[in-house]
Design a binder for these strands. Sequence first.
DNA 1: TGATATTAATCAGGTCACCTGATTAACTAC
DNA 2: GTAGTTAATCAGGTGACCTGATTAATATCA
Lengths: 171, 171
Amino acid sequence: MPNLLKKKSAAGKLMEFNMVRHTVDNMYHRNSDQGERRFLFQGQGKILVALYQNDGISQKELATSLDLSAQSTAEFVNKLVNKGLVTKEKSTTDKRVSIIKLTKSGREIATKESEKIPEFFDVLTDEELDQFTNILTKINTKLYDEINESNSSLFKKTQKIVKEHFRDWFL
Amino acid sequence: MPNLLKKKSAAGKLMEFNMVRHTVDNMYHRNSDQGERRFLFQGQGKILVALYQNDGISQKELATSLDLSAQSTAEFVNKLVNKGLVTKEKSTTDKRVSIIKLTKSGREIATKESEKIPEFFDVLTDEELDQFTNILTKINTKLYDEINESNSSLFKKTQKIVKEHFRDWFL
DNA sequence: TGATATTAATCAGGTCACCTGATTAACTAC
DNA sequence: GTAGTTAATCAGGTGACCTGATTAATATCA
């Protein structure tokens, strides 16, 4: 068990990081209407990035793999259709299902968003980047354990989506 | 400028961390109705924690220091009043202003929430905790610079709130 | 085969964190 | 004392979610 004070400093720094980053996100969010960093993990962005990794799947599959309700998924998909970023068409083999595909501009946005590397990493040295990566690997493992203990099917979904989502990032 | 691949790994790990943590948060959020980790940075929780550091201030001061609109602030405060966590009373010296105070149970919740250290730090060694703290210090500095460049009054507010918020964490 | 599930999607309606715009009541300044 | 400010409120809106009820299409089994 690590030193409590060190733990406290680290926890404080992480909270501070979250707060400050949140502030920066909102700044971008308010000043322009592009460039949101939480984009990838929520709502419409989540859908777009999932399609970027796996295009032309059904709305149901989207919902399942993103652990969203069917209704929320429908809502986000419809918003994206209205924005011209995805298309929705009925499957011919099973008329209940809708197949969702990225349009060209949807793909462009997804590409841009999912390849963004935050600038703040520029202030770190190679050694620090390695340390950071190692530390987060350990923390993430712990978090996966937590998920697995409380809900193993959610655990599997999370692993799957992370695997797909990040396959270009860790090589 | 650090190595691009290392930067990419670090960025990927951070994204993964955010996703997984988000998943864990939602898990807690759905299974019980306590114990949300984002609590401290959003909505009603933000208000509570701000009051914990600085009780009995006006609604306007709350809004300013948290960089929230007056309307949002009013909304959160009213919700907290309904839950019995804060009180709102008209100032006697200036009848326009409302003074907001924590109730006993509001203070209890704020205390509990703002002293929480995430369990996942237990998997790190003392050395790793130091590394993590150092790295985040550098990153945070960079983020502050970004804020400062684009909006220096927001920068000041952010620094102030961080200072108050975290005065017990970094000693 | 036809009645009975089950499934994919939708509609209606709700919560929470925000926001902008318009309005009111109280205070300040000239 | 009339003309600004200011603190707060009301009304209404968005985005990310959710639950419950309903519909239409497919699957299943007697």
